[in-house]
Design a protein around this nucleic acid. Structure first.
Lengths: 340, 340
DNA sequence: TGATTATGTTAAATCGAATGACAAAATCTT
DNA sequence: AAGATTTTGTCATTCGATTTAACATAATCA
């Protein structure tokens, strides 16, 4: 490996000072055009590599942004990540990614790493039971936080997410208006704000329509395809089997539909199914999935913007924002079969 | 925000030197046990945060590893990433992730960023047409590289990937042994080593069985569900329609099966379909997908190990490694229908 | 001509931790 | 008890870039 090229290497080669080189490379108006050009040329010729660690030690800006989500393998988060990436790219920030798999321990480790690296900020979807102090403490140590997808009661950080209660009520009402009365709620947990909101949305919609909510109709579980798939036997075996299912998300819905198909029944005909998120896959699924668009792109984009604004000192007025979900009706929902 | 706590803050508080504090916190045997304990306690009490930038400026080890793949939203890469993550976690390295979407430009930018940050190494699945010089140059600048999934002809860096030609021949032979003769090859491109290997594997298997290879049976395309889905009309409209399809990967296969279902036909009955990768989803799909296990987990794990070994100076003998794929027979492949 | 302003450049002081070279104190030899 | 050895701890410098006050020099003005 060639010896390290640094500012002083360039400075010596040209007989100027490192100060001039530093200023020139960063396009400071303090340097004469001619000098600047000469320096830039020489830098390129020598194969100079800017040392961010050294710079950030001095400036205390690292150009690093952390992103933490539950699981990047989940397409819902993956879509959010992509839009965050696009936004950050534009501003020359690098991002460091981590999953927390809902383990507080992992999340704390990651935040600690970010602090050590002097990260400029974090975008995170907090793990279950994240205490509000964790957020406050990070902020105190100079790490601004923006939350996505999930909120924490009483938190002061900006939050960007979909209006889950409203979104689920859209799906539930749609099924009710088709004539369904026995509607199951499949997948998910009560431990996140998202979870509580979604179940509440379902309960409210049912109650408003004068339909009694039967707690047995709720099958909690993992928010994955496998989760939906594995819930299907229990679902199909219910006494007085439901004619429809509101699923936690598209993954669960697709898993459930696959399970239904395995049993020789047809989703969208024998049983109506709704998803949530409107992943790219919802349209391709067979039958195509009725679902609720949840604005993942928006969430990612806005969260990234909010953070960048904050970093650049622009006081962002966007503190909290609920993205308004929209129903996407496709083939997985139809009127209930005659009998029953 | 409280004022910064640094080594000297602790040192002053206890009346020792920063050198002692530095050594104590890193468990150096040069410090007396009693002193060490006192220092650690004080550090915790003050809420000291280790400044990695400062340290790495001095030590030129950053604890950062870069990971570049085509697209983290692709479950194939996501599974690799997860195993890399597990491995790196263990060694307290932080990883920075980036997609290159097969754009050389993006890839170069990312490598540049890693150099600036003083990353310790990179694990990458190179973008299409990555010149061998790009790899060499990074290495010259002190950035060790380990390749995964794709290789580059003549490259000197370690490479970990599946034996694609062999894997596809497993799938193809399986279909041939079931009695299929007209077998299409759906999805993918010729521009990667993976692409060439996979198509070659198919061609060889066909030729070996004495079946003529009809170039029309190849439908290249995106390696996604949507790609498979959108290839289905063309596939179904072929004159003398094939009775089976070897798909580039599971995503394409599942997309194709969905397309087939839309047309009122049944994969695994009317048309046999094979995938590649054996994603978690392959088992859940309806019909469950016959596919080829490609050792994603292995690839990620071994690549991470190889890099870590290299970083720690352990001379790793693992330079190149082809993981041997295995056929997983499920319900999407059956004997061809009588007629035709 | 001397005073004032504009324009370029630089010396020197950081940022926070790591470390090789030393020094002082404590313990051991013989 | 003098010298050798070990234990424990400190000093001073280094890593590479940023930044600001200070300093030349040239240009403009009265």
């Amino acid at each position: 490996m060639a010896q390290k090229i640094k500012l002083s290497t360039i400075a010596d080669a040209l007989g100027v000072s490192t100060a001039t080189v530093s200023l020139a490379l960063r396009d400071s108006p303090l340097v004469a055009d001619e000098t600047r050009e000469k320096i830039k040329l020489e830098a390129r010729a020598l194969g100079y590599i800017y040392n961010r660690r050294a710079a950030s030690l001095r400036t205390s800006r690292s150009g690093i942004v952390g992103v933490v989500v539950h699981d990047i393998m989940n397409p819902f988060y993956a879509e959010i990540l992509r839009s965050i990436e696009m936004e950050l790219d534009r501003s020359r920030q690098t991002f460091i990614l981590s999953n927390h798999y809902d383990q507080l321990e992992k999340q704390r480790n990651f935040i600690d790493t970010l602090l050590q690296l002097g990260a400029d900020g974090v975008i995170m979807s907090p793990a279950i039971d994240t205490p509000i102090e964790d957020i406050a403490q990070a902020e105190e140590n100079g790490l601004p936080i923006v939350l996505i997808a999930r909120s924490i009661p009483g938190v002061k950080a900006p939050v960007f997410r979909g209006d889950d209660a409203f979104g689920i009520s859209l799906a539930t009402n749609h099924l009710i208006s088709l004539g369904h009365k026995r509607i199951a709620f499949i997948g998910g947990t009560d431990q996140t704000s998202t979870g509580r909101d979604r179940y509440q949305g379902y309960v409210h919609a049912m109650e408003k329509a004068g339909i009694e909510v039967d707690p047995e109709l709720r099958i909690p579980g993992p928010r994955t395809k496998l989760g939906g798939f594995e819930a299907s036997p229990q679902f199909l075996a219910m006494k007085n089997r439901p004619t429809a299912a509101v699923c936690w998300n598209d993954l669960v819905a697709i898993g459930l539909m696959n399970g239904i198909a395995r049993a020789g029944l047809l989703a969208g005909h024998d049983i109506s199914v709704t998803g949530y998120d409107d992943l790219e896959e919802a349209e391709i699924a067979t039958p195509s999935l009725t679902t609720v668009w949840n604005g993942q792109r928006e969430v990612g984009r806005k969260a990234a913007r909010a953070l960048l604004d904050r970093l650049s000192g622009t006081p962002s007025q966007m503190r909290q924002e609920l993205i308004v979900p929209e129903l996407r009706i496709r083939q997985s929902t139809t009127r209930p079969m005659k009998q029953v």
